[in-house]
Simulated assay, not measured.
Amino acid sequence: MKWVSVDEAYEMPRPEIVLGFHDLCLVKPVDDDDWYTGCLYGDGSIDCWTAYDDLYEALRGL
């Protein structure tokens, strides 16, 4: 999986949890307390754009 930004791609840390909601997802990487919202693509890649401090805030951000 990769973190993807507008200008370049970054290697994503290994995810501990990925919650998919159709094309949207929430990702919690291993060794990171933040949750990230993003797009989940059919090939398994993820485009993350926002980090949240906890799952509650990330769910509200969807």
Results as ranks from 00 to 15, higher is better:
L19Q: 04
T50D: 10
T50M: 08
C39G: 09
P15V: 04
D53C: 00
W49R: 04
P13C: 03
F21K: 05
L19G: 03
L26E: 03
D34R: 04
C48Q: 04
W49D: 14
E57K: 06
D54K: 04
D43L: 11
C25A: 01
D54T: 08
Y52E: 01
Y41C: 02
D33T: 02
C25E: 00
D23Q: 04
K28T: 05
P15S: 15
D31Q: 07
D33P: 01
A51H: 04
L55M: 07
E16K: 10
P29S: 08
A51F: 06
D43F: 04
G20F: 15
H22Q: 09
D47K: 05
V18M: 15
Y36N: 12
W35K: 04
C39V: 15
D32F: 13
L40V: 10
C25P: 03
D23E: 05
G20H: 08
D34I: 02
V27K: 02
D32Q: 14
T50C: 12
R14A: 06
W49S: 08
W35I: 10
Y36V: 15
V30L: 09
D53S: 02
G20V: 09
T50Q: 11
D53Q: 01
I46T: 12
G42W: 11
G20N: 12
F21L: 06
D33R: 08
L40A: 13
C48L: 07
E16G: 13
G38E: 08
G38D: 03
K28N: 14
D23R: 10
C39W: 03
I17C: 07
G42Y: 04
E16F: 12
G38S: 01
Y41W: 06
A51D: 05
P13F: 08
L19P: 02
V18F: 13
D54F: 02
D31F: 13
V27F: 02
D32H: 07
I46G: 03
D53F: 00
K28C: 15
P13L: 07
L19M: 12
E57W: 01
D53Y: 02
C39Y: 09
I46F: 07
A51Y: 11
D34V: 00
P15W: 14
I17T: 11
G20C: 15
E57P: 01
E16R: 11
C48D: 01
L24Y: 06
H22W: 14
D34T: 00
Y56S: 10
D33C: 00
D32L: 09
D53V: 02
L55R: 05
L55F: 07
W49Y: 06
D32P: 11
L40M: 15
D53H: 00
V27Q: 00
L55T: 14
D43A: 05
Y52V: 04
F21W: 10
P15M: 15
C48P: 01
D43S: 11
I17F: 15
I46K: 07
L26T: 00
W49G: 15
L26M: 13
D54W: 08
A51S: 13
D31K: 07
W35Q: 08
T37F: 00
C39Q: 12
P15D: 05
G44S: 14
D43N: 05
Y52W: 08
D53R: 01
D43E: 11
F21C: 15
P15A: 14
L26Q: 02
L26S: 01
C25N: 01
W35A: 03
C48W: 07
L24K: 15
G38A: 11
Y41V: 12
D34P: 00
D47Q: 05
V30R: 12
Y52S: 07
P29W: 06
P29D: 15
T50I: 06
L55A: 12
G38T: 09
L55V: 10
